[in-house]
Computed example of a mutant assay.
Amino acid sequence: MTDGILEFVEDILEVSFGFDIDAIWYNLEGRCNNLSYREKIEAFCYILKVAMDKGILKIANESVFLEGTSQEISDIFKSSFPASEDKMSDDMFCFDIDDNFWTPGGGVWICNDGDEIWT
């Protein structure tokens, strides 16, 4: 992970908190637009892992939290991305161009008081 990404992790998490996890992707793109598709995936999954390690994000699918370590869940995301950026939908982060839902789950943000924000 490049230092350029590391310096933005906290900022990206702060502005993405409470929103769909695609906010992480779009905030990452806005700050680091020179990354290749594979580098963006690596950075996105790293940021997911950091958020899960901090205890501010969980991933759920159909109202059930995914089980596993933050690294395992991050790796599931990494392997789920469409093969190339041109296969991603321009309209919705979680769909590919054929309207297939590719994300393994959505974000559940955990507030300081324990409240959950399901996205």
Rank of each mutant, 00 (worst) to 15 (best):
L57G: 08
I110F: 03
F17E: 02
D20N: 10
K54V: 07
G106S: 15
E116M: 13
F101H: 14
F65V: 11
D86W: 06
I41Y: 05
M52W: 02
G68Y: 01
I117E: 08
I5W: 03
N33P: 13
D11P: 04
I12R: 02
V108K: 06
Y26F: 15
P82F: 00
I41C: 03
M1T: 11
N100M: 14
Y26N: 12
E7F: 08
G4F: 13
P82M: 01
L35E: 07
G18N: 04
L6T: 10
S16T: 11
I24D: 11
P82V: 01
V9Y: 02
N112M: 12
M52R: 04
E85I: 02
V64R: 06
Y46H: 05
I47M: 02
A23W: 08
S36W: 04
V15D: 13
G18H: 01
F44D: 04
E62W: 09
S80E: 06
Y46K: 00
F65W: 07
T119W: 04
K58H: 10
I21H: 06
T2G: 10
I97T: 06
A23G: 08
M52L: 06
A83Q: 11
I117K: 15
E10Y: 15
L28G: 05
W102A: 05
I110Q: 00
G30E: 15
C45D: 06
S70D: 07
D53R: 06
I73Q: 05
F77E: 03
Q71S: 10
I24V: 14
S79Y: 10
N61R: 12
